[in-house]
């Protein structure tokens, strides 16, 4: 592990700064409250797909476990329940066991924003408006060139997860929602299915066959309505099979993940217990569950929708960089 200064990245770093300024300007214009949050927390939301950093606070021989927050969600939603109105955080988050790569870093900058009284599809419109706003600030136009291709932010290219599996992976709706049939289909496609679940294989086929096609037609792509197994903290649709969740892509790169937020505390508690059990089975770091979060939900999380956007990835698009490291003045490869 070496500390490297990368002064050759200065130009791209300055574009990232402009993207940051544009985001603050846009969100404050739209009356989102900017909030600064702790990075160390005594408890967290259990998420089975994330590993965390654990540390200790010490004072006269007494030690207390603290955790670097992998996402600001637990704080922002409490504040929503307490009445801040729409809010956002743009700052550091930490995820362990995710080595540095073109699109990953164990510490990264997250933009997470919540809007009251809206659902995921309406928030999608606002996200598009924000992308357009950033493009104009940086390029004086509603479009940018990324890696030689033009992207215009005047509209989304929209595709449902069901349609994307049909179109790009030749997997029909019936197979997508039937775990046994889906696993058989994966085997037919010569994926290794031994010891792997529906969720594992879904993700693998999604990354291998779907993602490379998204955001390739001159507009950002919004892909929506994931199977309920991937609902996380999102509301379910009336079909009972899919969740109100979308992600968006430019040039095959995932940039953001949006939910209509689950407001039902009982359902939330059930999912927490389930995620905590999965974490334990996977041998991940044991951490206290943030019970106060459930209390906040009981008190009443207003109808809202939220999106998490990888800031470095987004800035990478506007700076025409191919790796998030190209935006940094100090790089440490882990």
């Amino acid at each position: 592990m070496k500390i490297k200064t990368s002064i050759q990245n200065l130009e791209k770093y300055k574009i990232a700064l402009k993207v940051e300024q544009a985001i603050h300007e846009f969100l404050q214009k739209k009356t989102y409250l900017k909030v600064d949050l702790p990075i160390l927390s005594p408890s967290l939301i259990p998420e089975s797909y994330l590993e965390i950093f654990e540390t200790k606070f010490r004072f006269f021989g007494k030690a207390k476990n603290l955790y670097l927050t992998p996402s600001p969600e637990l704080f922002l939603k409490r504040l929503l329940a307490d009445g801040t109105g729409s809010n956002y955080y743009l700052g550091k988050c930490f995820r362990n066991s995710e080595p540095s790569s073109k699109l990953h870093s164990p510490e990264f900058t997250m933009l997470e924003m919540y809007k009251l009284g809206t659902d995921y599809l309406k928030l999608a419109n606002e996200v598009l408006e924000m992308l357009k706003f950033i493009a104009i600030k940086i390029n004086n136009k509603t479009e940018i060139i990324y890696q030689g291709n033009k992207f215009n932010f005047l509209k989304w290219e929209k595709i449902s997860v069901v349609r994307a599996f049909e179109k790009y992976a030749l997997i029909g709706k019936e197979e997508l929602f039937n775990k046994e049939r889906f696993i058989l289909k994966a085997k037919e496609k010569r994926y290794n299915i031994k010891n792997f679940t529906y969720e594992d294989l879904f993700s693998q086929i999604y990354v291998q066959e779907i993602e490379p096609n998204l955001g390739r037609n001159g507009y950002p792509t919004m892909i929506y309505d994931y199977p309920k197994e991937f609902a996380a903290l999102a509301k379910l649709n009336n079909d009972g099979k899919t969740a109100q969740r979308f992600e968006f892509y430019i040039d095959g790169i995932e940039l953001g993940d949006c939910y209509s937020e689950l407001t039902d505390w009982e359902e939330q508690e059930k999912r927490f217990i389930d995620e905590a059990r999965k974490r334990k089975e996977m041998g991940k770091t044991n951490h206290p569950i943030d019970k106060g979060f459930i209390e906040a939900l009981k008190y009443g999380l207003p109808e809202s929708s939220g999106i998490a956007i990888g800031f470095e990835r987004l800035a990478m698009i506007f700076a025409d960089a191919t790796s998030i490291n190209q935006l940094k003045l100090i790089n440490i490869d882990l």
């Binding site: 797909y49 790569s101 699109l103 990953h104 594992d200 993700s203 999604y206 990354v207 993940d257």
Partner: peptide, 12 residues
């Protein structure tokens, strides 16, 4: 070989 975590399901 590049690490990639889609945030839904296992890391890749």
């Amino acid at each position: 070989a590049d690490f990639y975590s889609p945030g839904k399901g296992s890391a890749m």
